[in-house]
């Protein structure tokens, strides 16, 4: 019950969000859709978890910065930001919204 309520909320939000940005199809692309070795511009971090958002910020992972996908392993993505490599899980990868490749 709790779970379905949560996902319902989530869906509604996504729908609304989708409506606003209907014209811009790229807005929905997140890091899990990225191609290996391609460098993208970060368009936004879509999470309610402000602490994580702030933390990513200090690593240089925020809107306007560059991100490169090095490898995709099972549930983990190895990414490159500002000369460092990090392993993140698919949950975190899915909140990193990305734009055009270079």
């Amino acid at each position: 019950m709790e779970l379905t309520m949560g996902s319902g909320l989530f869906r509604r939000k996504r729908n609304r969000h989708g409506k606003i940005k209907e014209t811009n199809i790229e807005a929905k692309i997140n890091l899990t859709h990225a191609a290996i070795d391609a460098t993208y511009e970060i368009k936004g971090i879509d999470t309610e978890d402000q602490v994580m958002k702030d933390f990513l910020f200090t690593l240089g992972c925020f809107e306007g910065e560059k991100i490169t996908l090095i490898s995709a392993l099972a549930d983990n993505y190895i990414i490159h930001i500002k000369d460092a490599r990090y392993s993140i899980d698919s949950q975190l990868a899915s909140v990193i919204r990305i734009g055009n490749t270079e």
């Binding site: 709790e2 949560g6 999470t47 978890d49 994580m52 933390f55 990513l56 983990n76 190895i78 460092a84 490599r85 990090y86 392993s87 993140i88 899980d89 949950q91 975190l92 909140v95």
Partner: peptide, 10 residues
């Protein structure tokens, strides 16, 4: 209920 994200510098 908080989502737990994982990030680790390699």
């Amino acid at each position: 209920s908080a989502k737990s994200y994982f990030i680790m510098e390699l």
